[in-house]
Design a protein around this nucleic acid. Structure first.
Lengths: 151, 151
DNA sequence: CCTTTACTTCAAGTCGACTTGAAGTTACAT
DNA sequence: ATGTAACTTCAAGTCGACTTGAAGTAAAGG
């Protein structure tokens, strides 16, 4: 901690500690315009407490499987001038809840199929429900194919 | 298709087509000992049809968020000599179902929290349930932090 | 026999989300 | 005033799961 002035803006170290992320992650987020900071006379970053909410949103959104690009798109819909209020966040989180529902549904499907397909040791792979679930993979660029699809 | 002999082993191209993955992915899986092939006199790979089930398992497991390392661990518990039977696969899938349940539970928690926390626009980030959900992140090596946790 | 298509290996490239390191600067506590 | 912890930028490294490309070999159809 640098100072104890209650109303002061936070240094990157303090902010990172409160946000539960590393300072390098914060700089990275800022480079992507996900969060903002102001600078001191000596060029150091200072954060408003309201930015904590943005970071919280980013981390939570990530655990639901959103990419930083998608998160940026969501955050960009927040008002520039005023501090986002309850209604703003609610608009965002509605979108989000649909995603969670979606993901849960996918997992449920997979689990149901487990009972009837791979679990049964069947050989009819071409007709296997699990197997034919994700068909639109392969053939388009580099990088991990699976691991987490953000549909 | 190379030949129409019904009982023949499959070339990598045919196998890939049936499995719905690319040939390069198959070679990669083989390099990790996830699947096996035999070689022709001319050093080309030939696959038994039973291997299709392994690939189906791999792909399905990936959609649930397992890494290839974890999948290998699971597959290594299958018998070496005989072709895996219904009981073998069922033993595996039981383990698997627990993982799916786990993942669903996590998402449900997150969704519940959404109703009370970020959605409300609260400022008490330090007490926020979503925010404090994933604390054990940061500080251990490179690579993506989030995106999908395989706990 | 010849041509095409499919295969072989191996090294290097790719993507997202950061981290790490180097070289230098600022701010706070004594 | 000074030591040191915290900060600055920028380039390069990392991880998993593949893909891409080059250079060469094999197999099937005509």
């Amino acid at each position: 901690m640098t100072t104890h002035d209650p109303g002061a803006m936070l240094s990157i170290g303090d902010f990172a500690a409160r946000a539960g992320v590393t300072t390098s992650a914060l700089r990275y987020y800022e480079s992507l315009d996900l969060i903002r900071s102001v600078r001191t006379a000596g060029n150091q970053r200072r954060y408003r407490r309201a930015e904590l909410r943005r970071v919280a949103f980013i981390r939570a959104a990530q655990t639901v499987g959103l990419s930083l690009d998608e998160i940026k798109a969501a955050l960009d819909r927040l008002p520039e001038r005023r501090v986002p209020d309850r209604a703003d966040w609610q608009r965002l989180s509605a979108d989000w809840r649909r995603r969670i529902e979606d993901r849960i549904a996918r997992l449920r499907d997979l689990q149901e199929d487990l009972d009837g397909c791979i679990g049964c040791g069947c050989l009819s792979i071409d007709r296997c429900a699990i197997y034919n679930r994700e068909d639109a993979l392969g053939e388009e660029g580099a990088g991990p194919r699976l691991g987490f699809q953000t549909p």
